[in-house]
């Protein structure tokens, strides 16, 4: 079973935007869509490391700000002709709070 940890309020992330969470295995971008769905992906584009958290969010996709690769927030898969993927993490909203997979802490503690 996934254990979750509170990282902040839903209102802390702008709609169609993202905020970063620092973890021991790198930054994780937490996205909020126009209709309040929340997704967590690694913040490193597989192309040349662009920060996905700074991309334009449209529907349930984000466009990397450096060279416009587009990623599906559900799966982390690059869309269209581009080939690559980023890791995704379990995240959910409960009572206006955002909870993320707590193993992001635990794994780092073990390291």
């Amino acid at each position: 079973m996934t254990v979750f940890v509170d990282i902040g309020s839903l209102d802390d992330i702008p709609r169609q935007g993202a905020r970063l969470v620092r973890t021991a295995q790198g930054c994780v971008a937490v996205f909020r869509t126009a209709d309040d769905r929340v997704f967590a992906l690694d913040d490193r584009c597989p192309h040349k490391g662009g920060p996905l958290s700074e991309g334009i969010v449209h529907g349930t996709a984000v466009t990397c700000p450096l060279h416009n690769w587009v990623f599906d927030l559900n799966t982390g898969q690059a869309q269209g002709a581009d080939d690559g993927a980023v890791g995704t993490y379990a995240v959910r909203v409960q009572g206006g709070r955002i909870l993320i997979d707590a193993s992001l802490i635990r794994r780092s503690a073990a390291a």
Partner: peptide, 13 residues
């Protein structure tokens, strides 16, 4: 404050 990360899980660890 919105320019900083939302949370820092490395600190919690």
């Amino acid at each position: 404050p919105k320019w900083a990360p939302l949370a820092d899980l490395t600190l919690e660890a």
